[in-house]
Simulated assay, not measured.
Amino acid sequence: MTHGKQWPLLAARGFHDMFAGTWIESDDPDEIARLLGSDPATAAPCGLEEAMREYEPYAFRELVWLGEHSSGWIHAVTIAGPRLRTDLLAAAGRRFVQVVWEPHGLGVHDLYYSDGTAAGRCSPVDIADPGWPFHEYTEGLVPRRPDLIDVFSAGPAEPVGSLGLWLENWLILAGRVSGRLIDEQYLDATRRLYSVPI
């Protein structure tokens, strides 16, 4: 699977203050919504541009733009609220990976994941560790490069240097696990905006 840069596609759609995407093994978005405590009857079909009118990271409500990503996989993008809780997915035995970018906090979070049996977190610096369930998808992904210059500032984190590499690694890995990278066609599709209890 070839890949271009994933983060610029998301940044161009406005995910500057937070991005939390959860790729979940399933063919049924409504089933996943119900598993998360949402009522699918109240979900509103919309494109991402319309969904982003509700963009409010850390709000005291949770809105998730959720729909088919590839055959056998759903993608849930948090539009409002904190990152999607994954404990209910793990308890139901669902395979998932979750990528979180938070410039006003950690920058790149650990990858939250479940292989359907065990759930956990993987640090970006441990991406090449052969002991974790999604190791087979990490070919060519490295935790550091000798030519990488890290830039640190007192302000919000920027997706450059190691942070940029780690973010791109996680997004590529999520695409490999789910069988589809994010592309313009994906971002231009109509999915549904679900309200999920926090």
Rank of each mutant, 00 (worst) to 15 (best):
D150L: 08
L63W: 02
L173H: 06
G120Y: 04
A91G: 04
F60A: 13
G37S: 11
L66A: 05
V160W: 08
K5T: 01
G93M: 05
S71V: 14
P156H: 07
T190M: 10
A80H: 06
G37A: 06
M18Y: 07
G120V: 00
D28H: 12
L9I: 02
G140N: 10
T22L: 12
E49S: 14
E184V: 08
T190G: 03
L148H: 05
G47L: 13
K5A: 15
F19R: 01
N169D: 06
D115T: 00
E25R: 15
E68A: 14
R95I: 05
E49R: 13
S178R: 03
V125I: 07
A43S: 15
R176A: 03
E68T: 13
G179L: 10
V100F: 00
D27M: 03
P159Q: 02
D87G: 09
D115F: 00
A20G: 08
P197S: 14
G155I: 04
D17M: 10
G81L: 07
I182S: 07
Y113Q: 02
S114C: 09
M1A: 13
I198P: 01
I149Q: 10
W132K: 13
P103L: 03
S178I: 00
A12G: 11
Y194A: 07
W166M: 04
A174F: 06
I172F: 00
E68K: 15
I172C: 01
V108R: 07
C122W: 06
G4C: 02
H16T: 10
I32E: 09
W170D: 05
E56I: 02
Y194D: 06
F152E: 14
H104K: 09
C122Y: 01
T138K: 11
G4Y: 00
R95T: 04
W73S: 08
W7A: 03
L163V: 10
L89I: 01
A80T: 05
H69I: 09
E68I: 13
L35E: 10
G116L: 00
L36W: 15
G21K: 01
S70V: 12
A43N: 07
D27A: 11
R192A: 05
Y58A: 09
S162H: 08
E102T: 03
L9S: 02
G47I: 10
E49D: 15
M52C: 03
M18K: 13
W23A: 09
L89V: 00
P197V: 14
D28L: 08
E139C: 11
Y137E: 07
L63F: 04
A118C: 09
E158R: 15
H135D: 05
E62G: 12
C46H: 02
E31V: 06
T86F: 12
G81M: 07
P146Q: 05
Y113V: 04
M52L: 08
L48N: 08
H16F: 10
Y194C: 08
R13G: 02
V177H: 11
G47Y: 11
A51N: 06
P130E: 14
Q185I: 13
I149A: 12
P159T: 00
V160A: 14
D150V: 11
V177Q: 11
I127K: 04
F134C: 12
W23H: 11
E25C: 05
V99L: 07
